[in-house]
Design a protein around this nucleic acid. Structure first.
Lengths: 221, 221, 221, 221
DNA sequence: TATGAATGAGGGTTCATTCAT
DNA sequence: TATGAATGAACCCTCATTCAT
C-alpha cells in the first residue's frame, strides 16, 4: 500500500547523500520560516545544515528550488488520500471531525514548512500553481466527491458543493494563517478546534430544542 | 466616500502633497501585489507613480514604510465598526450574512493591497503584529462581543466563543487566500459566498425535516 | 571636416558625466590590457576610475559592455577614411608608406585598447563580428578599391586583389601581435617598419640591377 | 606520422596513460578553442575526454597547465627545422613558397590549438614568453640566418634582416588571426595564399616590363 | 521640495581544486 | 589510480538609500 521503498541496500554513499539533502531542506525550512525566503541567505542555510555553500547547489538548482523541494516533501509525506479513505467508513459527522483533526495535525507538524512556503506562494506564480495543485486541489477534489455522495445518500443537506468545499478548505488555511499571526486562543487550544469546527459545521449556530451539553463547547480558558 | 476629515481648506501645496502620496501608495500596492515586496523596486514604484526615486523618501522613511502606509490606509478607510453596528439591528442570521457580505466586499476592493501585505505579514514580525491588531483583532473583538450577547439572549446556541470567532475569521482570510491562489469557483462565484457561508454557519450540514428550497444553495455552474 | 561636435553648451552635469565615462573606459582599457578581460574585476576598474562599483553600471550594461565601449571608442576616434583619402593623392608607393605609417601609429596609440580587445575578439563571437566589421573590414574595403584602381591604371602589377589585401591587413595585425609578444626589434624600431614594409611590398626580395642605397634598409642596431 | 620516439615497448598501463592524456588535451583544445580558456570548465573538458574531473589533475597540475600542455604538443609535433632544412636546397623563391606552404598548413592543422592558445598568450605573461620562445622565435632565428646567407650570396636584395623577418612572421600570425575572424576570402582560398604571398614578397607590387601571366595571381572568385 | 546619479554593501552562484572512497 | 561530491573563495550585479543640485 504505502510504497515501501524496500530497496534498502543503499550504499553508504547514497545514505549520506540522502541525509545531507534532508539536512539542507530542514535548514531551509527553518531559515525560510524565520526570516522569509528573500531575507534568508544561502550562507545561513548552509551553516545550519553544516555544509558548504556550494554543496547546496549539488542538490538544488538554485535558491528557489529549495522551495520546490519543501513543497515536494510536503506532498510526499502526506497520506491525504489514505487517511481520508479510512475516515469514510465512519458517519458523516465523524468523518469530518476525523478529517479536520488529521488536517490540522498535519498543518501543525508541517507548520514550519508551510510558513516558509506560504509567503512565496502568494507572490510567485509558479509556486502558487504547484502549491494549488499539489496541496490544495487534491483535498478539494476528495471533499467534493465525498460531499456529493453523502448528499445523494441524504446524509447531508443539499448544499452548494463547490463553494462549501472551498469554504471548508479556507477554514483550514485561514486557521493556519491566524495561528501564524500569533493568535493566542488558537495557539493554546488548537486541539479543540476540530470538534468545535465540526459541531459548528453540522449543527450550525441556530439554537435547538434539546440543549447541547457536550463538553468543550464553551470556552473554559 | 465618508470623508469627515475634510475640515481644513488645505492649501494647494498641501493638496499636491496628498495627491502625490496617494499616487505613491497606489503604485506601491500595484507593484507589491504583482511582484511581491522584495521583488519590487523603488525605481519601478517611482516610475509608476511618476515621481523620482528620491521623492518617495520625502514621504516614506524607507521601503518597508510603504507597507506600513498601505496597512494604515487599509484600516483607515475601513468602516468596520460602523458597518457592524448598523447590521446589529437585524436578526442574528441576517447580521452575519450582512457582515460577511461587507467583509468579503472589502476584501475584494482591497485585494491588491491585501495581496501586497499578506506575504510580508507572514514574514515580518512588526508588520504581523500591526496587521493583527489593526486588521484582525478588531473584528475578532467585535464578533466575540456580539456572539456572547446573542448567546446570552438565546438567539444562538452556546458555542465556544473564542474558537468560533477564530474560525469565522479564518474563513474570511482563508477565502481571500484561496481566491489569490486562483481558484476558479471562488473567483467567479464570490458574490454567492456570503449566503452559502451564512446558511452553512447557521443551519449546518445536518439534514432537516423540511427540505430547503431557497435558491443558490446548489451549484448551477 | 571633422564633425566638430560644436554644441558646447554642455551643462556642468553633462560634462561630468562624459568625463566619468571616459575615466571608466580608460580604467577598463588599462586593467583589461594588463590582466585580460576575465582576470580583471569590476572592483579594480572602479577603483582605478575612482568611482564606486555600481557607478559603472550607470554607464555600461555589464562588464562585457565595457569591451563594446572600447571598440566603439576605437572606431570613433579613427579617421581612417579621411587619412587614406588624403594619402591617395600621392603615388602608389608613397600612398602605402603613408598608409602604413598612419595605421602603425594608430596601433601604437591604441595599443592598450587593442591589447584589451584582441583576446576577447578571438574568443567571443559577438565581439569578433563587431571588431571585424568596425575595424578590419573597413580598411579591407578601402584597400581593395584602391588597389583595383591602381592596377587598372597600370601603376601596380595585376595581383590577386582580395588575397593581397588580406595579406597586407594581416601584416598590420600580425605586427601588433608580435609587438605585444614583446619582440625586441619590433619594439625598438617600430618607426622603421613602414618604410621597410613598403619597400618590401613594392620592390620585393628579388635583387635588381641597380643597387639600392637608400638608408634604413640594413639593420644598424 | 613521423614517430621516431617509438623505442620502448610501453606497458599496457603506460599506453593507457598516454592515451588518456592525449584525450584530455584534445578535449581541452576543443573546448578552449570554442569557448575560450576562461569560459571553459574543467567539467566540460572532463566530460568530453570521458574522464572524471579529478582525473585531469593526475595529468596536469591545474587548468593553466593544460595550456602549457597544448603549447608543448604544438612545438613537439612541429618539424620546423627539418622541413626548412629540406627546403633550403631549393632556390630562394621556391624556398619561401615551400616554407610558407608548410607553415600555413601547420597553422591550419593546428588551428584549434592555436585558437585555444592565442587569446591567453596575449594575456598571460608566462604563456606569452613560452609561446614566443617555443613557437615564434625559433622560426625567426632560422629565417634570419637563411635571409642573411642569401643576401650575402646575392640571391636576395640587401634588406633590413630583423625587421623583414618580423614582417614575414607577422604575416603568418596575422593571416591566422584574420582567418579566425571569419574572413571569407581567406577561409576559402587559403591554399592560394602561399603563392600569392611569395610572389608579392619577391616581385613586389611594382609593375615590370614583362607582363606576368602565371595563373592564380588574379582573383577568379 | 523634487530630482536622479552615485554609492557600496550584500548575496546568489560558479567552478577550480581537493580528497575520501 | 580514477572517481565525483564537497569545498569555499571570488565576483558580478542589484538596488535601497543618500545627497548635491
Amino acid at each position: 500500500m504505502v510504497k515501501p521503498e524496500s530497496n534498502p541496500p543503499l550504499s553508504r554513499r547514497e545514505r549520506l547523500k540522502r541525509e545531507r539533502e534532508a539536512r539542507i531542506l530542514n535548514a531551509a525550512a527553518t531559515v525560510f520560516s524565520e526570516k522569509g525566503f528573500h531575507q534568508a541567505t544561502i550562507r545561513e542555510i548552509a551553516d545550519l545544515a553544516d555544509v558548504a555553500d556550494g554543496t547546496i547547489y549539488n542538490y538544488f538548482a538554485d535558491k528557489f528550488d529549495l522551495l520546490i523541494g519543501l513543497l515536494s516533501r510536503l506532498a510526499e509525506v502526506d497520506r491525504l488520500q489514505e487517511e481520508l479513505t479510512q475516515a469514510q467508513q465512519k458517519g458523516a459527522q465523524a468523518f469530518f471531525e476525523t478529517a479536520f483533526r488529521q488536517r490540522l495535525n498535519r498543518i501543525m507538524q508541517a507548520e514550519k514548512i508551510l510558513q516558509a512556503l506560504l509567503p512565496e506562494v502568494l507572490v510567485n506564480r509558479e509556486l502558487r500553481q504547484r502549491f494549488y495543485q499539489q496541496y490544495v486541489s487534491r483535498l478539494t477534489s476528495l471533499l467534493e466527491q465525498y460531499l456529493q455522495q453523502r448528499i445523494e445518500q441524504g446524509h447531508i443537506r443539499p448544499v452548494h458543493v463547490p463553494l462549501t468545499v472551498r469554504i471548508i478548505q479556507s477554514v483550514l488555511i485561514g486557521l493556519l494563517f491566524v495561528r501564524i499571526l500569533g493568535d493566542e486562543p488558537l495557539g493554546s487550544q488548537w486541539e479543540k478546534v476540530p470538534q468545535v469546527l465540526t459541531t459548528l459545521l453540522f449543527d450550525g449556530l441556530n439554537p435547538r430544542e434539546e440543549e447541547d451539553d457536550r463538553p468543550g463547547l464553551v470556552a473554559d480558558a
